[in-house]
Structures are given as C-alpha cells and as structure tokens.
C-alpha cells in the first residue's frame, strides 16, 4: 500500500435533518483533513453529530452540503477501502467467527479466503476460535472479531464508531492497547468516534473536539507524546484537563457549571 493512500478530507460540510417540518442542523461547516496513517479521535457529548460525521465518511449518509473526499475523490457510498467497526459488534449470529471475518471476502478464492481469515484471527489473537459462534464469545472477543472482519478487507481507513463503548472498564483498557498495536502494525488511517476522553488521548495523534447544536469542530488538539502512553503522566493529565475544559468540565470551574 502506497504511503499517501488513506487520506480523508472533509470540506465545508453541513448537514441537517428534517424533523416535524423544521430542519435541525446536525453538522455545521466542518473542515478537517485526516492524514494518511494517522490515528484521529473525535470526541464530543452525545448529539454533537460525531456519529453522523463518521457515517458520512463511511458513505451511509449521502445528503449533505459540502464535500467528503477519500484520496481526493468524492465519497458516494460505502466501499471496501473504508472499514467500519460499530459499537455493537454487529457480527451475524448465524455465521461462525471465521465466516464472519470472511464476510466481505466473497470475490476471493476459497484458499485465499482461508489464508486471510487465519491471518486476521492470528492478528486479533483469536486463533482456534474460527468455528465458534458469536453467541459463544465475550464482548471483548466479539469486538476483536469485528475488527478482524473490517481489517480483512485491507481497508485504507478504519472507521471506529465507539468501538469499545459496550465493554467493561478493564477489558476496555486492554482493547485500547490492542487497537494501538493493530494500528502500529497495519499502518493505516484510523478515525475513531468516542466519548471517552482518556481513550482518545491514549490512542490518538489528534483529538478533534466537537460541540453540539449545531455540531461544529471546537478545537483540534495534537498529542505528540511517545507511545505507549502513560495515563498517569503529567503530560497526559494536562491534555485531559485541556480537553475537559472545552466541555466546561475543567477543574477551575465550579461544579455547578457542568450542568
């Protein structure tokens, strides 16, 4: 894969929904470039349009003003160059783990398919689970299968929609490490929507902060500290404070402000 592939550009993007005859602005004039090979998180409170933005990048939402460009070309619909991991793992319960990973590999020959499935099972550390059904997996394992399914298509960009949101705190921290490992290994662009500020700082090169009504980009914070990051370091804490301040949750504000 050539190095500059996997660039995603959003230009002057606005989107509104029509609810009860009146239009409700979800996204307002979004401008951002996701560089090839970077890990970017989008954080914001619920209703800020971050998931809508992700769905636009994925190609599931098509009616908006402005441009969404993938490697310079307008996104017109879903494509296998963009992988997606949803918050609910969305594995098909009637397919085995192996079949789920092979879900998007229909065009390949049986042998190639098997090779890719094995490779990605190994990648997410689930060797031996190929013939298990999703109902037999724990939440963390199921999400790893979902990641493997997305990566098996060899996407240039992996979109993550609160991928760890449904997991318990400890599994979540472990999966954050896993995601980092996969990102370093695959060297692809990853764009993650999350509402967990720590998660965003731990994983990202850039943290995009969005605010709601209408959804705008409030601030973009670069995180340049070396990996793996120490959640207890003062640098980490400082960035966290900086982000929380954007949500009026900074320590210097009286607590009442938060509401």
């Amino acid at each position: 894969m050539s190095n500059n592939k996997g660039t995603l550009e959003i230009r002057n993007l606005s989107k509104s929904f029509i609810v009860d005859n009146s239009s409700l602005q979800i996204l307002n004039n979004i401008n951002i470039t996701f560089k090839s090979g970077s890990f970017v998180s989008i954080v914001g409170s619920s209703g800020c349009g971050k998931t809508t933005l992700l769905r636009i990048m994925l190609g599931l939402e098509n009616h908006y003003d402005g441009e969404a460009l993938m490697d310079g070309k307008q996104i017109v619909g879903p494509g296998t160059n963009r992988g997606i991991v949803f918050q609910d793992h969305r594995l098909l319960p009637w397919l085995t783990v192996g079949e789920n990973i092979a879900f998007g590999l229909d065009k390949l020959k049986k042998k190639e398919k098997k090779l890719l499935v094995d490779e990605h099972l190994q990648l997410v550390g689930l060797n031996g689970f190929e013939s298990a059904y999703p109902s037999q997996l724990s939440g963390g394992m199921a999400q790893r299968v979902a990641i493997a399914r997305a990566l098996a298509n060899k996407p240039e960009i992996l979109l993550l929609d609160e991928p760890l949101g449904a997991l318990d705190a400890l599994t979540r921290m472990y999966m954050q490490k896993e995601l980092e490992r996969l990102w370093l290994l695959e060297k692809i662009t990853m764009i993650m929507v999350t509402h967990d500020v720590e998660e965003a700082i731990y994983l990202s090169d850039k943290v995009v902060i969005m605010s709601s009504r209408p959804g705008i980009i409030k601030k973009i914070i670069d995180v340049s500290s070396s990996r793996p990051r120490d959640r207890a370091s003062s640098e980490f804490m400082q960035i966290k404070a900086e982000i929380l301040e954007e949500f009026h949750l900074g320590t210097e504000y009286p607590f009442a402000y938060a509401i």
Binding site: L58, G59, L60, T80, I84, L92, F103, G104
Partner: peptide, 20 residues
C-alpha cells in the same frame, strides 16, 4: 443494522438475500 452491514460490504442482491 444488518442492512447497513450489507451495504458497507457492498453486497450484491443475491448474496445479500442468501447470506443476510
């Protein structure tokens, strides 16, 4: 959500019918 999944993976009609 399964309809969406099939769209993301660019399923053709027949495969969509038989697989999903």
């Amino acid at each position: 959500k399964y309809h969406e999944l099939a769209r993301v993976f660019e399923f053709k009609r027949f495969r969509y019918l038989t697989k999903v």
